[in-house]
Each structure stands twice: as C-alpha cells, then as structure tokens.
Design a binder for these strands. Sequence first.
RNA 1: GGUCCGGUAGCUCAGUUGGAUAGAGCAUCUGCCUUCUAAGCAGACGGUCACGCGUUCGAGUCGCGUCCGGAUCACCA
Length: 596
Amino acid sequence: MSIDNIISQAVAAAVKALYNIEADPSTIACQTTRKEFEGDLTIVVFPWVKAARKSPEAIGREIGEWLVDNEPAVASFNVVKGFLNIVIEPSFWAAVLGHISADKNWGITEATEASPLVMVEYSSPNTNKPLHLGHVRNNLLGSSLARILAACGNRVVRTNIVNDRGIHICKSMLAWQKWGDGATPESTGKKGDHLIGDFYVAFDKHYRAEVKELMETRGISKEEAEAASPLMAEAREMLRKWEAKDPEVRALWEKMNSWVYAGFDETYKRMGVGFDKIYYESETYLEGKEKVLEGLEKGIMFRKEDGSVWADLTDAGLDQKLLLRSDGTSVYMTQDIGTAKLRYQDFPIDKMIYVVGNEQNYHFQVLSLLLDRLGFAWGKDLVHFSYGMVELPEGKMKSREGTVVDADDLMDEMVSTARAVSEELGKLDGLSDAERDAITEAIGLGALKYFLLKVDPRKNMTFNPKESIDFNGNTGPFIQYTYARIRSLMRKAADAGMEIGDYVTAVPGAREVALIQRLGDFPSVVAEAGRSYSPALIANYCYDLTKEYNQFYHDCSILREEDAAVRSLRLDLSATTARTLAAGMGLLGITMPDRM
RNA sequence: GGUCCGGUAGCUCAGUUGGAUAGAGCAUCUGCCUUCUAAGCAGACGGUCACGCGUUCGAGUCGCGUCCGGAUCACCA
C-alpha cells in the first residue's frame, strides 16, 4: 500500500465522517505538493464544496484536523485556498523506502496463466533492402511496447510479418542475375541485406535509363515507356514464375532471401529486438480469400458485375473497400485478414497490436471493422499503434535520392561518436578493450534508443544525424551516467564495509523525501505506460528520477555522512534509484553500464 | 472536398484522470572540480500554450468553430 493510497483512503473516511459524503478514494486528487508550498502531499478539496456548503478553506481545515487526529501518518497540515497540504510523519518515509527497497520487482507485475494474451506486430520489413531509420523507430517502439505490456502483467507474443514476395524482390533477383556476376555475401564481404539492396538500386537505375532511352528513341510519353519497358516485363514474368512455383526462380528466391535474413538478424540482434513468431507473406498471402468468400456468403461482402468483391463500409462513415480483384487475386487488406486468421489459429489472443506508421491509419480503421464483422472477437478493439515518420532536415527520406539513413550505418556512427566523446573525457582510461567496446556500445545505442523513444510516438520527428544526438541533458547517456555513478558509489561503500538497509531510526530530509516519492511513482507510471501504449512515459519518468537523484546527490555527502543510520538510508536510496532506473531503461531496451 | 492526427520558449520536446505562479534540455550569459565520476550542480534570460467562443470554483488539458502543417481517401504494399 503506497502512501498515496493511505492518504486517499483516510481523506475518504474524513469526508464521510465530517459531511456524510461518499467519496471513492481512487477519484480523490492526491498529488505531490509543489515545491513552493510546505507539505508532502496535496489534496484538492473543491469537489466537496457544494455538498458540504462550506468554504474551501473551512473544508480543508476540517479535513486536515480530522486527519491529524485519526491518521498516524499525518503529522500536520496547512491550507492554501482550496488546497490541503499534508505533512507526512517523517518516519513514514523511511518505512516507504524500506517497502520499495524490499520489493525486488518494484513496479513490475508478472503475468500468470490467466493473464490476457497480447500479440504485438512490429518491424515488418521488405526483403529487397536493408533496414533504415524508419524501421529503427518501429522496431524500438514495438519491442519496448512488448516489454512494457509484459511488465504490466500481460502474456506477450512478439511477431513480425515479413514481406518476402512480390515484384520488389523480383527486381533484386533479376538485377542479380543480369549484373551480379555470382556475387554473394561471402565473396563481397557485404551484409546480405545490403547486397540485395544494392541490386534493387541497380535495377532501378537500369530501368530508369531504359525508360529514358525509350522516350527519346520512340518519342513516347513516360507512362508509355514504362509500360513498354522490357526490364519491367522480365520482372513481372519472374513474379509469374514465382507464383507458379517455378523451381529455378524459387531456388534463387530462397537463396537471396536467406542472405537478407542473415543480415536482418545481425541488425536485430545489435538493436536488441527479437520475435517469438515470424510470419512470411509468401505463406500467408493466399489465406484471406477464403475468409472473404465466407463473408460474401454471409452477406457481409458483395460482388460487383466484373466479379470483384467489396465490403461496403459507408454505414460506418467509410468508403467501399476492394477485397478481391476481378481476376480473383488478393489485395493487401485481404492478406491482413488472412494473417489474422492464421494468428488466431496459432494463438488464442485476446488483443492484437499493430505497430505500423500513421500513413496506414485508414487501413487499420477498415481492418478493425472487417475483422469485427467477420467474427474476430478482438477485431473491434485491435490497436493500431500509429507512429509518425522520421524526417531529415532536408525533408523526407527518399531511397531513390539516396537520402535514406541506414540502420547499420547509424548504429556504427552512434557508437563511434560515443567512443570519441568518452575518450575525450578520459572516461575509458585504464579499461580493457572488451570493457571499452561494451561501454561505448551501450552508450551509443542508449543515446539512439532514448532519442527515438522519448518523444510522443504520434508525432513526426526530425532527425539530424549531425546534431540531434547529444549526450547531455535529457538523453540516454545522462541517465546511464547517473546509474554508473551510483554503481561506483556502491562499490566504494562495499569496499569500506558500509551497511545499507539499517536506517529505521533515520529521519529523511526534504531531498530524500522527494526522491522516495518519485520512486514510489514507478508502478503507476509503468501501468499508465501500458494502458496508453507509451514508452515515452517511461523515458520521461527515468529522466525525472535521474534529475531528482542528481539534486539529492549534490546536496549531501553520502559516504562521508557520520550518522551511520542516515548514511545507510542514503545508500539504500541510491541503490534503489539505480535499480529503478535500470528497470525503467530496461523497458526501453537500454542497457546500463556499470561504469562510464 | 471527406476522414484522421498534430500546433506549448529561438530550437528539440515534457505536461499523467481538468488543479495552485507553465516545465526540462539545447543555444546565450554567470557561478561551482583539493570533497563519493563536472556526460554534473546552482542561477539568469526566454511564453498571447495557433486563434475565438463555450462548459465550471478552476482549461495547455474537455466541447464547438476558424487558421496553419502532416497523413490518407488505388483492382500498390
């Protein structure tokens, strides 16, 4: 039971005793007192003014007096306008810290057999090019969200739907056949995904040259030239062969995809993201048809004269949506319905969360409606975790113009910057090469992850590779640094044989109380982050906690404190802060180095 | 044009169910390394919370309208 709950319940009891008003303790506004006023917690008394027929000041005074008489945790109070500021009996704060400190899983709720089963889909790359900055935001949001949901007591299945088929991969395959000269990741020393990406670019280059030439020699329009392009015709022919399961095409497709997957795995691993179940579009793209035809029979869909199948969503304020082309083939929406069916067969999920960019908001609005009408229990309240795009100072990333920020390059750059800064500050002196590598990796990736996760996912963000990433202020490294300092402090305390956790007689000061209150918030922050699907909430909490700790740290001497009980209290407070920071940053997938 | 989402300090962003005088970082300026790590701390400067109306004890937060920016409205994925 947290101190907030104790006070809320006591206030509810006071209101009942004084004015015979029933107040739900959870609705009572109990908040940390602002610094400029005296007190620890503040109760807003305005809600009872009408029913009690008294002035806010009088009500505040009466509740305050009642609390002092009846609630041992309350030491004193003062009233400013309609705000009742409560001073908690100082010894209670030591007890609260003891409670937090004893709970090794503070803020984390373990899932049980009965917990809801939540599936989170994220990443969902194409196999024709390497991962870029946009994917990085997606991957980090998705995996962080999965961790947060698990910490909120959900059973979580992380999933990835890989777009491994279609014209795009055929383009890469064709380019490899034509101009690849038998190149492999081994022969070129390139990561497989980058190698395939290069061939995709090569196709595009040759294709555009071809179109230009056709326009000039035949004097035709761009559209006509594109339609007449032999190169594109070859790619389409290859796709046709792929769909007909031509052994040669399939073998090449499998070989090249395996290169890409090896490359992706490396990137995922470094980024610290993973999946419990991966679906491949090549295995699911035919699935939705059956479900759509089933819907047709039930009258949920209708067929037009040309044979195409549609859903009419005008009654829900949306348009008509195509689900099967006139030639009977599937579209994107149909495949998503099919994937949903497969997933439900594999896992009896209660909730589905799709981490997909906000350009697909409309798609998921439609998907939700369709799944609901087709009888999926979770269809109606599926969550489209919609996030904004990452833009560069010059504007949007465009692969054709080569302005895409590559995920691997970005991570390399972050880590080498971290190393340069660390060396300049002399932070790595006296450490082994392995230690240096581990620390700079943690800092570089910590900076990147924190930067992408601390902002509201819905918003578009600008990423300036040169200037955006900082190691000062509200950044991952700042939080990591504070953690590393505490760890160093704990090592010194251990060397000196100092005791922690033996401070029952100590009375915490104002800074300690502020920090304990902040630590006490962690469980509700995690719960709120789970409810609102917001890694940013966790990030900003970690930052606030770090700031609070640094102020405390600079205001007092810990190891030199002469009163053993106070020193012990401060050491335990430091240790608990470090643990909470590690837990919070862990939910963001950020590792905390022991020294830096 | 329809639908959805944004608009808070020069810049990048917080602001938890409506609560007290609006919060950080960066940038600019001023102090603090002989004291557990200065990637730090303390302070100064900086605001019509896009605009208007409404709801009420109280609105950055809720409702309606306007303006600006973005996304989307394919027999693409």
